[in-house]
């Protein structure tokens, strides 16, 4: 599923690139991510994007972002630790210039795949490890979907500054296990319906190539 989506996204991007009249652009993003699950803390995020101008006010972007948020333990969800997430998305957005054209509103949708990685709290892991137990918790990757919008300001003829608000839907599942190394006994379970939804407030610079 994951591979198919990625292949489809890549094919879409290159098909558009071949048929496009305008050029490419690249972007750098810095953001603050606020997970909607109260047990996940807010965190800074960094990312890049490569885009294709499909028309003067329409672009197709492939973006990647990374953030790592501190997780506090919950009964049904993750244990205490660090959750690093890399959403890999392809999206389309449209610009709506106003005034003298330097300022524009924009909006778009994006979809893709989120690659989460959970690390169980290192202090707790060490403590369990010291008495012969290994604790492992994993979150599986899954699809994500986002809607975004914001304002864009043209810094020059080839560069723009974008203010972005993005709501990203990500549902994931995972697993946990505790293993006794002395006798090989393991207890394990699944983590269902993990909520990785986030709200992002970001600032991006796009440079036309």
């Amino acid at each position: 599923m994951k591979t198919r989506i990625m292949i489809l996204a890549a094919a879409l991007f290159f098909a558009a690139a071949v048929s496009a009249e305008a050029g490419f652009h690249i972007g750098l993003t810095g953001a603050y991510i606020r997970p909607l699950d109260k047990n996940q803390g807010g965190a800074p995020a960094y990312g890049l994007s490569v885009g294709l101008d499909l028309a003067s006010n329409l672009s197709l972007d492939v973006s990647v972002l990374r953030y790592e948020s501190a997780v506090t333990a919950s009964t049904d969800g993750l244990s205490a630790g660090q959750l690093a997430v890399i959403p890999l998305e392809i999206g389309v957005d449209a610009r709506f210039p106003f005034g003298d054209g330097k300022l524009a509103a924009w909006a778009g949708v994006a979809g893709g795949y989120a690659l989460p990685q959970f690390t169980y709290d290192s202090t707790a892991a060490s403590a369990w490890n010291a008495i012969g137990f290994t604790v492992v918790e994993k979150v599986r990757s899954g699809p994500c979907l986002g809607v975004m919008g914001g304002l864009e300001y043209a810094l020059s003829s080839t560069s723009v500054l974008r203010l972005e608000v993005r709501y990203r839907l990500m549902k994931a599942s995972g697993s946990w296990s505790m293993a006794d190394r002395t006798g090989g006994l393991t207890q394990s379970g699944t983590l269902d319906n993990l909520n990785l939804d986030t709200l992002t407030l970001g600032l991006a610079v796009r440079i036309g190539l």
């Binding site: 505790m178 006794d180 002395t182 006798g183 006994l185 207890q187």
Partner: peptide, 16 residues
């Protein structure tokens, strides 16, 4: 403090 069941705890006790 662990998710082990009662019967698993008996096994842990004897293993350790």
């Amino acid at each position: 403090r662990t998710p082990f069941t009662a019967s698993q705890v008996r096994t842990l006790l004897q293993n350790r």
